[in-house]
Amino acid sequence: MMEPPEERPPAAVVPAMPEFRDWGGLPELPLSEVLRRLLPCLRSIYAFAAVCRPWRRLLRSSADLLRPLLPPLILNPRSSVIAAFYKLVLAQPLAYRTDLRADGAVLLSASRGHLLLHRRCGPSEGEARIIIIDAFTGAERREITLPYPRFSYHYAALSPTHLLVFHSKHAFFSLPFPDPNPNPSSSSLHWTKHSLPRSASFVTGILGFRGRVLGLTDLAQLLEFRLCASPQGQSQTVQMLPAAGLPDATTFERWHFGPRLVAAGDRLLLVLFMLEPKSASLFQNKRGVKKVAVYGLDIAQMRWEEVENIGAYSLFVDCASKGAAACIDVRSCGVEENRVYVVAPGCPWRSFPPGWEAALGDADNEPFSERAMDRQPWPSNIWVYPQLFY
């Protein structure tokens, strides 16, 4: 007699795998770790951003964390190429798409991933304009008409909400930026005039720090800007922040190299290029730089204190664009920690430890000699960051 076949339990039903995986739905924590491990290679970071919109949003939201991990790139206006300190950041130089020296434009600053240039108007030419160019590729370009074409504008910068243009010690103009109109005309612009504190000197730097917009003058005076969409109360737009501890303004270089304000993590630092002592000779009016000094601000006491060690950070000072930046992940980027890197006319870059002093009799030390300071700061190499990180 044949035994009945053994009954087996029904096989478990395996759910069908979806044909496509939603990469954009991955948790942010592992994605952030992946993104961090892609540094310092810019090509890998941009490939990460190209996967999908959620990944790109994550990259933008992580900008403040990623930016200090990457040193600035070097743009040479003469050769129109961008290069990096280290090949792992950028394997091959990039061709820049804009001729920055065309149209007689003058570089005012590098600010928030853009280069800001001023194109003056001649007797038979049109209106004076601010030219805003993407600092990384030069592919994006906007021109904005200035409110008063005959003014001598000496500095411009971008805040998170405005374009700021400075023309004197006493006043400046602001314009909401970015504007929804890609090609604004003079009739559609809404420039607002603001007053600066009467005791302030020429503004030479704008910096975002802990959600605040800070400014610095050529006398190393510290300012705070509070800009809003409404022009009401504009007399209180800028206030002086008293801070003690700095040397007299006659002892440091004010126009070519500094002073420079830079945020290094949760510290606010100031780089001063100290000048040689004044000579008793009436015929010696120029003085070379003898020391690179770094000061940190004690915010509780509002006092600057000189420091000789900035830890794992390196500082980058740009003569032409009146800017400065800080980098902390120096080991993977080809730069040294606790150094001040300087770019100036006739000199691609040099680095100095904080508190560096020139040797006695080394009056021709480049790039800080009197001869170097006689050169025009533009066009020289410029520190630039990709716009993606702003």
Rank of each mutant, 00 (worst) to 15 (best):
P10L: 08
P10R: 08
V14Y: 00
A16Q: 04
D22A: 01
D22M: 02
G25R: 03
P27V: 00
E28M: 10
P30Y: 06
R36Y: 10
R36V: 12
L38W: 04
I45H: 08
A47F: 09
A49L: 09
R57Q: 13
L59T: 10
D64H: 14
L66I: 11
R67D: 02
P68Y: 07
L69R: 11
L70T: 06
P72E: 07
A105P: 03
H114T: 09
A139G: 06
A139W: 06
T145W: 06
F151H: 02
Y153D: 01
H154G: 00
S159L: 01
A171P: 08
A171Y: 01
P176C: 00
N181A: 11
P182G: 14
S187R: 13
P197A: 01
G205F: 03
G211H: 09
V213A: 02
L216P: 07
A220Q: 02
L223K: 03
E224Y: 06
P231E: 02
Q236G: 13
A243R: 00
D248T: 10
W255R: 14
H256W: 09
V262I: 13
G265F: 10
L268A: 05
E276A: 15
F283D: 10
K286N: 14
V289A: 11
R303Q: 15
N309I: 08
G311L: 07
S321M: 08
K322L: 11
G323W: 04
A325I: 03
V330E: 04
R331A: 13
Y341Q: 04
V342A: 00
A344T: 02
P345E: 09
P348Q: 09
W356G: 05
E357H: 06
A359M: 09
L360G: 03
M373N: 03
P377R: 04
W383I: 09
V384G: 10
Q387A: 13
L388W: 11
L388R: 14
